[in-house]
Design a protein around this nucleic acid. Structure first.
Length: 105
DNA sequence: GTCGTGACAGTAG
DNA sequence: ACTACTGCCACGA
């Protein structure tokens, strides 16, 4: 049920923009949501157009935020109350996908 | 049409 | 926890 009328870029931005606060989606989930498997393609779009979408709501399958903006994303997560799980020494964190994963229908 | 690149995913060790 | 490898897909040159 993909949308061949929408460009890959437009579809990605639409899905990411539809993620509510306190929720996140993995790159693979976003790709699947638009009927594609281009998890990497999603990253490419985010890298270029991410400035205009809540990019921090898109994380990797492991629950880690973008490799280049983890510190930046943490501020957004704190502000939105996104469920996070910290390591024992609180040095690193990851998103609790079990609770924060947003599933588009 | 081919190649290199990438804010990825999954498996193996 | 880590690195290394392969598979996948979109995009620009």
């Amino acid at each position: 049920m993909p949308q061949p009328n929408e460009d890959f870029v437009g579809a990605v931005l639409e899905v990411v923009a539809a993620i509510p606060e306190g929720r996140v989606m993995s790159y693979g989930d976003v790709a699947a949501a638009i009927g594609s498997r281009a998890a990497r393609g999603v990253g490419q779009v985010m890298a270029y157009y991410g400035s205009e979408v809540p990019w921090w709501r898109v994380v990797r399958a492991s629950g880690h935020p973008p490799q280049c903006h983890e510190g930046r994303a943490l501020e957004f997560y704190r502000a939105e109350g996104t469920p996070l799980v910290w390591s024992r020494d609180r040095s690193v964190f990851r998103v609790d996908l079990a609770h924060a994963r947003h599933q588009p229908d």
